[in-house]
Simulated assay, not measured.
Amino acid sequence: MTRMEKICLYLAVGGAVILLFMFFFSTRGVMDYNRLKSRQAQLDAQAAIAVSQNSKMEKEILKLKTNLEYIKHLAKHEHEMAAQDELVFKEKPKNQTPKN
């Protein structure tokens, strides 16, 4: 092998190594592609959760607009309200001392 052939071989191998390095580690290389792919999977999962929550909220809004019994249930159990014809009995806390 002549000296010129050796130089060309070394340049070709060096060029191939540089191209491979650029292929894997450049801005639009394989590593960046894998990072973007995993980020897309995370965003897809977040979007699915948001769609599910949005659907639940739409159902809740529809119930609040149309279902009077549901509104009464929420008022009674979540907001501790009572209807006009109901009596509410509350227990006194046991740790209170009588005031004189």
Results as ranks from 00 to 15, higher is better:
M81Y: 07
H73C: 07
L74Q: 09
F24R: 11
I49H: 04
T66I: 03
A45R: 04
G29P: 02
E58G: 03
G15E: 11
K37T: 03
F89W: 09
L43W: 03
L87V: 04
T66H: 08
Q53N: 13
L64T: 06
E69M: 10
E86R: 09
K76H: 11
Y70E: 04
I61T: 12
L36F: 07
V88T: 03
V13Y: 08
D85I: 04
E69L: 09
A82T: 10
F21H: 04
K63Y: 03
S38E: 07
M57T: 11
V17Q: 07
V88F: 01
N67Y: 05
F24H: 08
Q40M: 05
Q46Y: 04
L74H: 05
V30Y: 10
V51S: 10
M81Q: 13
E80A: 15
A45G: 01
N34F: 15
R39I: 01
A47I: 03
E69T: 06
Y33N: 02
K59D: 09
H77I: 00
R28F: 02
K76G: 02
L87N: 02
F23Q: 10
T27W: 07
L68C: 01
M81L: 13
V13L: 15
M22Y: 05
A50T: 02
H79Q: 06
F23L: 11
N54C: 07
E58D: 14
R39K: 05
A47C: 10
K56I: 01
E86Y: 04
V13E: 12
A82G: 06
S26T: 01
Q40N: 07
A48F: 03
A83L: 12
E60L: 15
A75Q: 12
I18R: 11
D32H: 13
V30H: 08
F25Q: 04
F24C: 06
G15F: 09
K65T: 01
N67Q: 12
Q42H: 03
L68I: 10
D85V: 01
F25Y: 10
G14T: 15
I61G: 04
F23C: 05
E69Y: 05
S26W: 11
Y70S: 06
E78R: 14
Q84R: 11
I49D: 10
L36N: 12
R35E: 02
A50R: 06
D32K: 13
N34S: 06
L87A: 12
H79C: 01
K63C: 06
L36E: 09
G29H: 02
E69S: 15
Q40W: 08
D85K: 12
L62A: 13
E78I: 03
M81P: 00
H77F: 14
A75F: 03
S55W: 08
T66A: 11
A45H: 03
A50D: 02
L20T: 08
N54V: 00
S26L: 05
S38I: 03
K72E: 11
A75S: 15
E60D: 06
N54M: 08
K56A: 11
Q84P: 13
H79I: 00
K90L: 12
V17M: 13
V88P: 00
G14P: 01
F24G: 00
